[in-house]
């Protein structure tokens, strides 16, 4: 590889295993453009009927939360137990609710 060789763009691959299910992240792929990215994703990630639909997204387009903000972002949910059904006392006579 010469040093002036451009890095081929990276794409994230999402697969819908079957209709009715959401697309799920499967891995990534290198490709210069979106058309070849779909073809490469097909060859690399769906050789055995793993999917019925593919999404490819430029990796650079994904905005991720910073793991250092994990506590700040997600811990506040921990003490909001009133968001869960078991927080509320309903007598058994009422039946299933």
């Amino acid at each position: 590889m010469s040093n002036n060789e451009t890095l081929t763009q990276l794409w994230e691959v999402f697969i819908r295993p079957s209709n009715g299910l959401a697309h799920k992240h499967a891995g990534s792929i290198h490709s210069a453009d979106s058309e070849m990215a779909v073809q490469a994703a097909r060859d690399v990630y769906t050789r055995r009927g793993e999917g019925t639909s593919l999404w490819v997204v430029p990796s650079s387009a994904i905005v991720a939360s910073d793991p250092r903000d994990k506590e700040e972002l997600f811990d506040p949910a921990d003490d909001k137990i009133y968001r869960h059904p078991s927080f509320y006392n309903i007598p058994d006579e009422v039946g299933h609710m």
Binding site: M1, L7, L10, G27, S28, H30, D43, V44, R47
Partner: peptide, 22 residues
């Protein structure tokens, strides 16, 4: 073809550690 695929899954795993496949 599978072995080539295995190589690619693994290269994409290595790239998550901040090293390019190239």
């Amino acid at each position: 073809q599978d072995e080539g695929g295995h190589g690619l899954y693994l290269y994409s795993a290595v790239e998550t550690l901040g090293v390019s496949r190239e």
